[in-house]
Simulated scan of single mutants.
Amino acid sequence: MKLLTVTLLLCIILYVRAQNKYTNKYDNVNVDQILTNNRVLSNYIKCLMEEGPCTPDGRELKKTLPDALSSECLKCNEKQKETAEKVIRHLMKNRPNDWERLSKKYDPNMEYKKKFDKKL
């Protein structure tokens, strides 16, 4: 009986921890391929800006982005943090107009941008 109770408690703890993380379903998406393909990257940006349709992973990103920004990616796994930083750096360097538009939409008070700039 004790073993069953401990096992059940462990399952509950693991379930709660899993709920506090973002899905890793899209962790294997080739982000470099997206960043080097202007058409695909533009489609993602249009999705985030609500100017065009979204793919399933675009919808997930759009849903997750506000919470990830406000929590400093607390629910992100290490791969997601690395990918987010790569995308941000790419947009800042190669697509500054799109970076500015996205920043205005998702960070109008620039509070998250300031935190990110300190990290850099």
Score class of each variant (00 low, 15 high):
Lys81Gly: 01
Ser71Gly: 01
Leu41Thr: 05
Met1Val: 08
Met1Cys: 12
Cys54Gln: 00
Ile12Phe: 11
Ser71Asp: 08
Leu120Asp: 01
Leu69Ser: 03
Lys119His: 03
Cys11His: 04
Asp98Arg: 03
Arg101Gly: 04
Cys76Trp: 03
Tyr112Pro: 03
Leu48Glu: 01
Glu82Phe: 08
Leu3Tyr: 11
Asp107Leu: 05
Lys104Cys: 05
Lys79Pro: 02
Asp98Met: 01
Glu78Met: 01
Leu8Gln: 06
Leu14His: 14
Tyr22Trp: 12
Pro66Cys: 06
Glu72Ile: 03
Arg59Val: 08
Gln19Asn: 14
Thr83Arg: 11
Asp27Glu: 06
Glu100Thr: 09
Cys54Val: 02
Thr7Leu: 15
Lys21Asn: 13
Leu120Phe: 11
Asp57Gly: 02
Thr23Gly: 03
Lys86Ile: 10
Arg39Gln: 14
Tyr44Cys: 02
Asp32Lys: 05
Tyr22Met: 05
Leu69Arg: 03
Gln33Arg: 10
Lys2Tyr: 13
Cys76Asp: 00
Trp99Lys: 10
Asp27Thr: 10
Met110Thr: 09
Lys25Glu: 14
Lys104Met: 12
Lys79Met: 02
Lys86Ala: 05
Arg89Gly: 12
Glu85Cys: 03
Asp67Lys: 14
Ser70Gly: 03
Arg17Phe: 12
Glu60Thr: 14
Thr64Tyr: 08
Lys119Glu: 09
Ser71Met: 05
Thr83Gln: 14
